[in-house]
Nucleic acid binder design. Structure first.
Lengths: 210, 210
DNA sequence: GTCTATAGCTTGATAGAC
DNA sequence: GTCTATCAAGCTATAGAC
């Protein structure tokens, strides 16, 4: 019988601390000393468990990406055949929003990490291609069925625009709060969902019209 | 009579080098030594001309932002009254795309910088609020006239989605090239323009329908 | 305005005891 | 698996000569 119902291993303590700090300051804005200090472990343990700093960063992302990917794939697979564009966009957006809303602060950090990764060229190979592209391809496959008359290039571009809108929105930078003088709240993800899905679905439909 | 038609001052040499390096590696991923070395000037001159590193970063962004802002404002002001949504989105997108296409490599670097800034919380106060919000407000004002029946909150969110799509697109990360197996090219900004504007305009219209 | 030199500190990574 | 101690290199910023 375990004494602690949720014993947090050293590895997980490092991952949690790294996640929060990387999300706030970026890969180069955080030192391994800051991370291990926040995790309450010795500096040398970061290298022992994860190797170089870059591998730690990849491990931080992979932990959440695998969970999101599973849910997105399940939702995409559960859609009717042919699916609707709204259903596809929702299947892509919903797991992220649900977790960000109810999954704890780690998921908020992850959202900010994804925004950094998706907007730089640095992690294209090590993260985007291996972690993100498989789900992207499943989405494209679905939207091809939803809009059978559309040009394939249009659908790729539509996916790209969608990704840009979603990553910036999920990152909750607070910019729209300031710009709208408090009318809109970055953190009101349920209200955003009701706008994000129709906005993007309408964009896809317009592209499909040619 | 000037001997060199384009004498590049030390200040501009530093700005140019900083711009290119910051765009590739981010604020913390570049040292002042790398910047001054690439600029062919001494380390101490960076501090002499710009003060601390953070001020240099802001100066890099301001140089281009002021030019883009002038053009965007002029295009927005030249639209018919009431404007169309397509006209508004085009007035916002076109200056960036034109410069990225024909303005030289500095503008490509600037686009990648903007993507970093817009997706983080770090520069919200020092850059976003002072450099970017005035044009954003002019855009919102225009779209209110173009879609008079729309809810104001919907328009702010539409602007936010637009910003996410544009910044990631202009950053030209190359991700869509890989994902689409070469079918789409990040650098083909003229072909993107023909898709970006209708996609976003349709999204705004859909939000306005309620 | 430009240069050299350097202060004072932080970095990632590892060797070796336990 | 965890700890201490440390290395070699890098960092921003500045003082002071020219």
């Amino acid at each position: 019988m375990k004494r602690d119902p949720t014993p947090v291993s050293t590895k997980d303590r490092i991952l949690d601390a790294a996640e929060a700090l990387f999300a706030d300051a970026g890969y180069d804005g955080v030192s391994l000393r800051q991370i291990t200090s926040a995790a309450g472990v010795e500096l040398a343990l970061a290298n022992y468990h994860f190797g170089p700093k870059s591998e730690l960063f990849v491990a931080v992302v992979r932990r959440r990406a695998e969970e999101i990917n599973r849910e997105r794939m399940a939702l995409l697979a559960a859609l009717p055949d042919p699916p609707t564009v709204e259903g596809l966009v929702a299947a892509f957006a919903r797991p992220f929003m649900e977790k960000s809303f109810r999954g704890g602060p780690g998921w908020k950090s992850y959202a900010r990490l994804v925004a950094q990764i998706a907007n730089s060229q640095r992690w294209t190979e090590a993260i985007m291609r291996t972690q993100f592209d498989p789900v992207a391809e499943a989405f494209i496959k679905g939207v091809k069925k939803a809009l059978p008359g559309a040009n394939l290039k249009d659908l790729y571009w539509g996916f790209h625009f969608m990704l840009g809108a979603m990553t910036m929105t999920f990152a909750e930078t607070g910019r729209i709060d300031v710009l709208s003088k408090g009318r809109c709240k970055s953190s009101a993800l349920d209200k955003i969902y009701a706008r994000l899905v129709p906005f993007l679905a309408a964009g896809f439909r317009r592209l499909a019209e040619g």
